[in-house]
Structure formats: structure tokens, C-alpha cells
Design a protein around this nucleic acid. Structure first.
Lengths: 340, 340
DNA sequence: CTGAAAGCGCTAACAC
DNA sequence: GTGTTAGCGCTTTCAG
């Protein structure tokens, strides 16, 4: 029995007699044989694995995404090579180390700016790339409408009757932070509300671009210290910061919906536990969709890039006060999680 | 110039003249050449990558672990193949699909029971395996002393003067759940406290072995419904459940430290945000250590397996009441997180 | 120090 | 249907 035949069996090649096939399979099983993926990859120039670059500096975000990726990937026979980037600055270094020619059939790239240099390289290598939460003209991408989301969030606050509205933002170096600021300002302007400049707060922290509980806590303390000039509602640029903000309020003996209303952004898992009203980003779905897109992209690389945009959805819970009655956050959560 | 020489350059082989080396490097750079990992792997029978099996059904746990793994791994030139298992029952299936001969140099296996069948297979393939949060006599392992942890937690409650102490547990099918129950009972018994059987609550939910916010919420509601027979303190088997429990208390207009004291288990990130007193499991560290161990294990496979055990550490925050003053959870968190 | 050649384990094209 | 053979892109002897 030739090696070629064995190979055919393991590749479901039609021209193998049923008898031979069974025999091969039986022996293979007894010997615990499995084709060597590397040899296979070398020979057929396809590796059945994809590389995923995820930002390890956005804990909650990447968890959901990874979940989505993994979930969809398990439907295809494909392995996942994970590269966690700990800091935005490391992107290039990571890319350099991992943009490994021939190692993977495709790459998923999340939440970080894809340097042109590498974009060019991937194109040249003909490796399909799908972007999530970031944009590059050359590749398929799934992004979130930050401006629109922030606009909706602010609008919600306004519709509840708030007149003195602030924003608690992350570091303005970050693109999403800037976009969210714009959306916020647009809504406020449209409503004809005057806005005290001191209500525009953002973090200066370089750490995680300011998307941390700590910045939320500290900036909210600053709001609190304003006394009567304090806004009655604040749009917080991320849930994780909102959690910090909530803690600050509590420490100051202020009550959330009543003294200061809060709307967050992201809808991380805890948001529902805490009853946080927020803008939902479909992270799990984006991860899952990205995989799907990558798979089809692997079939044809020629079609022009398609860019898909998601609009965050307002999830009303109990941190915005006024006409909202407090909810049971636990039962609420059921309608939200798509990850289970 | 021969292909062999190029190879030598890329492998830092000493016997290449400096001049040739420079020339190769220069050209390689211009051509954007990188050795093909698969071809390389095939030739040298080493792949420079490890497989990680993580339970995707323990969100917070695996995040920390992955973080630790990734962090340590980046110090070594090694790629990470990730396999997320969505349910304990899938372990065998996953293993079958991914216990891929020759694909990886080692495997990290987390929080799930390693079936003997696969253990044998790995041993035969001489693939080093390191276990975390689970045990098998044949492999190195890092585990957590659940019994001791629960014991400490209960002891803490007792030391605060509580006499009526309950346990809010996960599904007893789960090993950690059972161990934590034992530790709890041991402490209570030692203290000579009588324990009303109705204070021993556990989830029957198969989902995530009952380690969910929902079970915490529901079971705490049952405690609350006990009226005067209600315990004054309860040990909750996991932080995620504790979060649900906290919500239940809040919904019932009960105050946490005062009406019911709570101590959790895990010390997930949010624990500090919520001021939850809990038992810290060094998840990040275990991930990191596991990688280190695997690396040395790859050097010599003959040494007998070493089993390392961690004792969870009590982290006192504000959910246990009595002599504890409320803390600022945010600033508190700084002393706890090891993940940044 | 460098080139040539064997082989890593498989796939695919080609004969039979 | 099945055996044979030429690579896949690299590492690693072995000569020189």
C-alpha cells in the first residue's frame, strides 16, 4: 500500500476503494496516526489556521471578540493562532514578528491601527486580512459608529430632560475617544444646550488610552467637586470608566440616577450586573462575522474590500434616572448577552 | 551563495563570515524574506509554538490566565495556538481534534479534567504537558487549594463574629464546588457552630457548572426569603455569583455588610470595583508560571512531574461588615491587580 | 567558512 | 484504483 493512497484517504479523495479506505482508517486508528499539519501545510500551501491580533489592553472588549471568533471558527476546520498585543505601540513590533509569510491563511486584526507598511506586505503576500474595530481602505472591515453612538447616548440624556450634561472621556489621542466626543458635541449642539467647558473632561493617562476604571473614578471626582456647577448627567466614554465613575459617586454619597445620571459605552458583561445604561457594541458578533468574512475572503481575494459599519444600540437600564424605574439587573441581563 | 548558508545566517550559526552574514541579511531585508515556519518546523522537528486549551466557559478566569500566558510567552520566541473549549463535555472532542501530533512543542491545559486516554497519548508522543487548575499524576500541575481557601473564607466570617453562616455554592458536580464546600464545612465545624441545613445552598444549573451571576442572584433570593432564619453571612463560591448575590440583596433593599456579609472566591477584576471581599486565586501568575514550566519541561521530559499548589489569599474589602470600614474600591484595586 | 545533497512528512500530478 | 515521484522550504550532515 502506497503512501499516496493513505494521503488520499485522509483527504477524502474520491478514487479510493471503500475497502482500502477502511483498511487505512483502521490501521491509522490503531497507530494513532494523524497527518502532520506542518508537512501538510508545506505540501499544499495552505495551513488551515488564522492569526488573530487582539489588543490585550482592552480586557473586556477582547474577551467578547475572542469568544465570537472562537465560536465561529469551531465551525470551520481551522486553528487559531493568537497574538496578544499589550500596547498600541507594540503593533508594529508584533506585526514584524508575526506577519509570518506562509504560516497562516489569513489574519484577523482588531482595534488597532494597521500600519501601511504591513498592509502593503499582506497585500503583496496575498494574505487575506479582515479588520475589526479599525479601518484601512484595502481590507474588509467591521467598525462601530462611534460618533453616532455617542450622539445617541447624549440624545438619550437630553430626552430625559437633562440640561447640564458633561462628558467623561478617555485620552483624546485615541480615535474612538475623539469620535465619541464629536458625537456628544453634535447632540448637545443640536439640542441648543449651552455647555460649560469644564463639563468636557478627558483623561490624560497614556495607560490603555485612559480607558480605565481609575480615570473614570478620578474624573468623576472632579465633576463632583464642582458643587452647584456640576452637570446632572454625564456621558462616559466606556463602561469600564463608568464603573469607576459610579464608585466615585457612591464614595461621595451621591446617588446615581438622582444626583448624576450616567450613560456608558460598550455594554460589557458587567454593565448589566450594575444596571448601567449604555451603548451596546456587538463585539461577539463582530468577532464571529469577521471570521466568516475571512473565510469567504480566502476564497477570492480579488473582490474590492467591503466595509461594514455597526451602529451601537442604546441599552436602557437604571443609571439614567428620571422616568426610569430601577430594574432587576440580573433578569435584565438575559435579554442582552448574546455570548452564551 | 548556497541556500545552506542563508539558513545558517538565520539560525545564528557561528561559522558564517561576517561579510556573508551582512550580505544575506541585507538582501533578505530587501526581499522581505522570512524563513517559512512550517518548512522550518518540518526540518527541525520543533515548531516553536504551544497549544493552549482554555475553558471558554469561565470567562473571567480564562482572561486572567490567558493574559499571564501571553505575557510570559512573549519573552520566548514562541507562538500560541489557542483552543477554547466551550463546555467541559467537549474536552475529549477538542483533544481529539487538536492533540495534533507534531504540530506543537507543548501543551498547556487549564481547568478541565484531562482524560486518561489523552494523557497516555501525550506521553507516548513525548509532548510535554502542563496542567493548571487541574490535576493529573503524570504531568506538572499548578493548582489552587480550594478546601483551604474556602476554609479561610469561612474562618474570616467567623472571626468577625458571625454565627449564622451560609454557603452559596455552584453545582456540586464541579470539583472546585465540592472542595469549597468541604473547606467551608470544616471551618464551621471547627468553630463549633451549628449549621442549619437550609444554609447550604448550591446551584443545580448545568450551565457553567452553576458559576453564573444568575445562580448567585437566585440562591441569594432564597436566603433572603428565609426571613429571621436568614444567615448573617454567606460564603459565595465564586465572585461572579457574589455579584449576583449582591444584586439580589440590593433589590431586596438589604444592605450588604450590615444585613448579610459576603465573601467571594476568585478575585476577578470586578471584585475590587465592587469592594467585594474575596479569596484571591493567582490566575495571572499561574498562567505565567505554567508557560515557564512548560519551557523548562521541553528541555527535559524525564524528570518526574512536579505539582505545585497555591493557597488562595484573603483580600479584605467591604462586603464583610463589622469591623471593616468601607473602602474606596478604586484605590484599593491598585494593590491587588498583578495583571497590568 | 561554504556549497551540495539528503531528508523532514506530506500532497498532487502522472503513470500504470 | 493505486503506486511512484517530484517537490513544498527549510535544516543539517558531509565534503571540500
Amino acid at each position: 500500500m502506497g503512501i499516496g493512497t493513505v494521503s488520499r484517504v485522509f483527504n477524502d479523495h474520491p478514487s479510493v476503494s471503500d475497502e482500502t479506505r477502511q483498511r487505512v482508517l483502521r490501521v491509522a486508528n490503531r497507530l494513532n496516526y494523524q497527518p502532520h499539519p506542518y508537512a501538510r501545510g508545506l505540501a499544499r500551501k495552505r495551513t488551515n489556521s488564522i492569526l488573530t491580533f487582539v489588543p490585550f489592553f482592552t480586557t473586556f472588549f477582547f474577551v467578547e471578540i475572542l469568544h465570537g471568533v472562537q465560536s465561529k471558527l469551531s465551525e470551520h476546520d481551522c486553528d487559531l493562532l493568537l497574538y496578544g498585543v499589550n500596547h498600541p505601540d507594540q503593533v508594529s513590533a508584533s506585526l514584524k514578528r508575526n506577519a509570518i509569510r506562509g504560516r497562516v491563511d489569513g489574519v484577523l486584526f482588531f482595534s488597532m491601527k494597521m500600519p501601511d507598511e504591513f498592509a502593503a506586505q499582506y497585500i503583496e503576500m496575498k494574505t487575506p486580512v479582515v479588520l475589526v474595530d479599525t479601518y484601512h481602505p484595502s481590507f474588509d472591515s467591521f467598525t462601530v459608529e462611534n460618533v453616532q453612538g455617542a450622539y445617541t447616548a447624549a440624545k438619550h440624556l437630553i430626552s430625559l430632560g437633562h440640561q447640564k450634561i458633561g462628558i467623561l472621556n478617555a485620552n483624546l489621542e485615541s480615535v474612538p475617544a475623539r469620535e465619541r466626543l464629536h458625537g456628544f458635541q453634535k447632540a448637545v449642539k443640536e439640542a441648543g444646550l449651552s455647555i460649560d467647558p469644564i463639563w468636557l473632561k478627558h483623561s490624560a493617562s497614556p495607560r490603555l488610552d485612559g480607558f480605565t476604571r481609575e480615570t473614570g473614578y478620578e474624573l468623576m471626582k472632579e465633576f463632583i467637586a464642582m458643587g452647584s456647577r456640576r452637570p446632572t448627567a454625564v456621558f462616559v466614554a466606556s463602561d469600564i470608566q463608568a464603573i469607576g465613575a459610579l464608585a466615585a459617586l457612591q464614595d461621595a454619597n451621591l446617588h446615581c440616577p438622582d444626583d448624576v445620571a450616567i450613560v456608558g459605552f460598550d455594554d460589557i458583561m458587567l454593565a448589566s450586573s450594575l444596571g448601567l445604561t449604555t451603548m451596546r457594541q456587538p463585539m461577539f458578533e463582530m468577532g464571529s462575522l469577521a471570521v466568516e468574512r475571512l473565510m469567504t475572503r480566502m476564497q477570492d481575494l480579488v473582490q474590492p474590500a467591503v466595509h461594514m459599519t455597526f451602529t451601537p444600540k442604546l441599552v436602557v437600564r437604571s443609571t439614567c434616572g428620571f422616568e426610569n424605574s430601577p430594574n432587576n439587573p440580573v433578569s435584565r441581563s438575559k435579554s442582552v448577552g448574546a455570548t452564551s
